[in-house]
Nucleic acid binder design. Structure first.
Lengths: 140, 140
DNA sequence: GTACCATTGACAAGTTAATTGTCATTATAG
DNA sequence: CTATAATGACAATTAACTTGTCAATGGTAC
C-alpha cells in the first residue's frame, strides 16, 4: 500500500504536473504548446517520421498528431519530403527554424533541470533512469 | 542534452501517459475520473481537508476541486463535517463507500504495479523513490 | 457591535490535449 | 484492375483544467 513501488507511481503523477507547469511557462512565449513540443522532440535532432508513425510512437490518435503537425508546418518549424513507402504521407523533419527553436526549448529546460538535479549524485541519477526505463518498457 | 537528468524528465512524461492510460481503463467502470481519484487519494485513508486545502496541496484552482468534490458528494463517496476554522467550508472525508471504492482502486493498481516492478530490485526502487522525492521537492 | 476585507461556493465561459467518428481520396496488394 | 487499407481533413465530444465574476457569509479590527 505504502510501498516504494506505489509511492513511485504517485511521484510520477505529481512530477508530471509540476514539470508541465514549469515547462509550459517558457513554451508559451515561443508560440508552441506542449503537444507541439512532444512532436518536435520526436523529430529532434534529425529523425524523419510520418504522421501515423509519430502517433504510434507517442501512443495517441493519428488525428491529434495530424492537427499538431499541420500547426507546426504552418509555423515553418517542420517540412515534409517524399515518403518512399507512401506517396500521400510525407516524411516530416525539422526545418532549421524548428531545430533552432527546439534547441532553445532544450536550453531553457536544462536550466530548470540543472537546478532540480543539482544535489542528486550521478550514480543515483543513472539508477533512477534505468529503473524508469524498465518501468516504461513493462507498461508498454 | 542526452544526460540522465534530461532522460529522466522525458521518462516521467512518457510514464505519466502510460500510467494514465492503464489506470483510466479500470477507473471508468467504477464511475470515477482521474480527477476524482486524485481527490480521493488526498483523503485516503482518513484525512479531513476542506476544498481550498485540497486545491492548495494539489496545486490547482479551488474551483476545479469544488466541482470534483461536489461530484463525489453526489456519489456519496465523501461527506463533510463542521470545520472549526470556517463554518462555510466543511472538512471533507471519505464515507465507508468512498473508502471501500478507493481500496478497490488501490487493489487494481497494485496488480499493475506488481507486474511493472516485478524485476526491479528493492534497493533500486528505494533509491528511485528518494530521487523522485527530492526532485519533486526541488520543483515545488 | 458594526463596518470591512477575505474566504468560500456557485456559476459561466474558455483552453489544452486529447478522443471518436466519418468522409473522400489515394495507395498498395492481390 | 479491383478491393481494401492508409491517409488527411473535418466535426463533434471529452477530461481536466483555467480565469473571471458574483453573492453570501465569515473572521477581524476598531
Amino acid at each position: 500500500m505504502n510501498s516504494d513501488a506505489y509511492q513511485i507511481t504517485w511521484l510520477i503523477r505529481r512530477l508530471f504536473r509540476a514539470m508541465s507547469q514549469r515547462s509550459g511557462e517558457h513554451l508559451t512565449d515561443l508560440g508552441i504548446t506542449l503537444a507541439d513540443r512532444a512532436v518536435l522532440e520526436f523529430l529532434y535532432p534529425e529523425q524523419t517520421l510520418s504522421v501515423p508513425e509519430i502517433a504510434e510512437r507517442y501512443q495517441v490518435s493519428r488525428q491529434h498528431i495530424q492537427v499538431t503537425v499541420n500547426h507546426l508546418l504552418d509555423m515553418r518549424l517542420l517540412t515534409g519530403k517524399d515518403n518512399p513507402r507512401h506517396k500521400r504521407s510525407p516524411l516530416l523533419h525539422l526545418t532549421k527554424k524548428g531545430f533552432n527553436l527546439f534547441e532553445k526549448v532544450l536550453q531553457r529546460d536544462q536550466t530548470l533541470i540543472d537546478a532540480a538535479f543539482a544535489k542528486i549524485p550521478n550514480t543515483d541519477q543513472k539508477m533512477t533512469r534505468q529503473t524508469l526505463e524498465t518501468l516504461l518498457h513493462n507498461l508498454s
